[in-house]
Amino acid sequence: MRTEQALIKENTLIAKDTWKMVLETTLAGEAECGQFVQVQVPDFYLRRPVSICRVIAEDRIVLVYKVVGEGTKRMSEMKTGESVDLFGPLGHGFPVEERNVMVIGGGVGVPPLLETASRYIAKGHQVTAVLGFNDAGGMILKDEFEALGCQTYIATMDGSYGTKGTVIDAINANDLKETFVLSCGPLPMLKAVSEKYTDGFVSLEARMACGMGACMGCVVKDQEGGSLRVCADGPVFAIGKVVL
């Protein structure tokens, strides 16, 4: 966990409102799957927390982010060759266990699951990927999951690609039996995943300030009524630990 000026090697639109930024940074060598970095976007005050999609070399990470407001819009306008201040890697990522796994991602929650899948595959385990999007135009990283060797299933809410409906619909339609799951995506999806599965982990998204556990801006409640910080205690939590 430290700050570093990273060099932008690529910043390109890969799907509707969704961008891929490749960064040269030595933070890459310290990154665990499911961790995030805080990106300092020029002209904006607070940093933007963005999950690490992929570590592609000892000095290179990939961020995949969605333009949802003015800050991420400005981030999408940054050019190759510009430097960007990163703080990270932050948080507790997904565990890499000695077993097969199903990764379940929704929308811009899909990216951190790619690095996670690659680490399971590197250890010789089978990874099933179930990815949900609003429509085919918003679909991301399907080819990348397949290239890793994941059995990949797609759900779109409008039915324009794969199973029509949610990731749960795709799991049922394809009769997928894996019971250990890792998931990241919108809250309704994480709730549905937590109702269907007991063995696994979910990664949460939150508005943050410090990103390191000091400010208490991003807290969630655990089942006993205690508080947990998404940034420092998470963003990855065991299913059932947090009140979603």
Partner: peptide, 17 residues
């Protein structure tokens, strides 16, 4: 426990908490 979330909002050259 404090207030419900969101507890943080960015502002021009600053933030609300």
């Amino acid at each position: 426990f404090g207030n419900p979330t969101p507890r943080i909002a960015e502002t021009p050259m600053g933030m609300l908490n």
